[in-house]
Design a protein around this nucleic acid. Sequence first.
DNA 1: GGGCTGACGTGGC
DNA 2: CGCCACGCCAGCC
Length: 110
Amino acid sequence: MSQKPSTEAPLPSFEELREAVYEIVAQIPKGKVLTYGAIALLAGYPNHSRLVGRIMRSAPDGQLPCHRVVSATGRLAPHFPTQASLLAAEGVKLSPSDKVPLKTYLWQID
DNA sequence: GGGCTGACGTGGC
DNA sequence: CGCCACGCCAGCC
């Protein structure tokens, strides 16, 4: 009782989100990319793209293809100069403005 | 405990 | 197409 019947969604803890993000990012096919917002949504955290970004910043690079994660505008992550190289190695060509053409490389789940 | 920061997203100009 | 303002939330000083 006393449980207010509000529309609050039972969002998992930040730790749960971290694991969910790792799972999702690890499933991104080579040559494709995903946006922070999309990952947050798939993880069950709508509109929490920033949290995903914070997690990626602390994410273990080398085991996780974090270079396949870009912003909704196709912008690459700051302080991550090797991201462009890693993407290029997978066949992802950037726009003249250093942005990823999501129209072509965004991972669309079949 | 309070305020600023930041691997974001969207809308407006 | 680019820049700015607002909303969002956890982490850091």
